[in-house]
Simulated assay, not measured.
Amino acid sequence: MTTRRIDVLDVLRGVAIMGTLGTNIWIFTSPGGPANALDALAQSGTVETFLRFLANGKFLALLTLLFGVGLELQYRSAARRNAPWPGWYLWRAGLLFLEGLIHYVLIFEFDVLMGYAVTSIIVAYLIGRSDRVVRAWMITVGSAFVALIGLATFIMVYGQVSTVPPASEASTLFSEGAYLDQVAARIQLIGVYRVEAVFIIPMGIVLFLLGSRLMRAGIFEDSVQGATLRGRLMLAGLGVALPLNLLTSFAGEAWFLVDRYLLPPLVALGLLALVTTVVHRMSGAPGTVRRGLTAIGRTALSCYVFQNLAAATLCYGWGLGLAARFAGLRPWWVIGAWAGICALFMALSTLWLRRYDRGPLELLWQWAYTAPQSRRVTNDKIMDNSIKR
């Protein structure tokens, strides 16, 4: 890969990480917290609904596409080294699942890393297959996913089924509860909070494979072919899907699944193309914003986890308790909270990378990934020496 293409991926990851916080921040800043996420969504005013629309689902989908690109890079690396595939990548996926589980239990109910880990194991066995096989998987899983979303939406629209339980009451767990009480609730309600995997995994399979194939098609190349492909994606994603997504955002809670899981992936394709085009057209030294986005992209795992921890500390009762204290200032203070956290992590990640080449969690994760391999190599050498003797 050229340096320019690596820069593009770092910027895209930075945008995706900041965008996922743009979705999650509405959960953190709600006095009821994750326990009343759907209640808060149903009660949103016009301004808040529009602000939620700007991020909801789109950056989750963009991050999912980029995970597919990362999987493609891992596959290419193994092919260059003539290493077995998926081989040690399965250990990598296992570590990602463990990271997600810890993140879920200790910090945030709607972690996506566990779903990505399961998805990556499935896609690892598909990514090296022929285009025909990959296309068949994408069409089959994608069709089933669309049918599931369509059926559920039809039932909610015409069957008078609400996404919010009729007897739902405001929870004080996050505005007044202790940290350990929240941890206990996450463990107790893991089946409830993890139900999103029903949508994340099939969507992930399609987007992982699509990210891989878009990279092979030259989406990140500064070429005529790449520019043409990006233009088509921007037209479809930003010209067609984005206006439709705006409509579903104001169509009511019954359209929640379409609004989060069906149209946003199409918008994300347009965003991927747009950001890539903008980066390619930039000349000269990167400015402050681009350097900050790149730094976040290079420390994406650390920023994803720690920005959620920062938001929880600011908003929950065991921290500063700002969600309950500033409830009357929604939605405006939420924008400031998001911008402040993003600026903080732009600065922190930039400073960290002056000394280290990876983020703190990335360094720990890399050690956990390579340590068993190093131990195996050492044991193999010992055995070889014993045989020679």
Rank of each mutant, 00 (worst) to 15 (best):
T2H: 06
L9S: 05
V11I: 14
L12N: 01
M18K: 00
M18Q: 09
G33K: 11
G33D: 02
P34T: 01
A37R: 12
L38R: 14
A42C: 04
Q43H: 15
V47H: 07
L62C: 04
T64I: 09
G68E: 00
E72M: 13
N82Y: 05
P84M: 03
W85F: 12
W85D: 01
G87H: 06
Y89W: 13
Y89K: 00
L90T: 01
R92G: 09
G94A: 05
L96D: 00
G100D: 06
I102C: 10
L106H: 03
F108D: 00
F108V: 01
E109R: 12
E109M: 04
S120L: 14
Y125H: 15
V133K: 12
W137G: 06
M138D: 02
L148E: 03
L148R: 04
T153C: 13
F154V: 11
V157N: 00
L173T: 02
Y179F: 13
L180D: 10
R186S: 01
G191Q: 07
V192F: 15
V192M: 14
Y193M: 05
E196Q: 14
E196I: 13
V198Q: 11
I201R: 05
P202Y: 05
I205S: 03
V206E: 05
L207R: 01
S212H: 10
S223D: 03
G226W: 01
R230C: 07
L233E: 03
A241K: 07
L242K: 07
T248F: 15
E253N: 13
V258D: 04
Y261S: 02
V267D: 01
A273H: 09
L274M: 14
L293K: 10
T294K: 11
A300R: 02
F306Q: 01
A311E: 03
A311I: 06
L322V: 05
L322W: 13
A324S: 14
L329S: 13
W333L: 10
I335P: 08
G336M: 08
A337N: 05
G340M: 08
I341G: 07
F345V: 00
A347I: 12
Y356E: 11
G359E: 03
P360K: 02
L363K: 12
L364I: 09
Q366N: 10
W367C: 02
A368S: 12
Y369I: 03
Q373C: 05
V377A: 15
M383Y: 14
D384Q: 15
K388P: 00
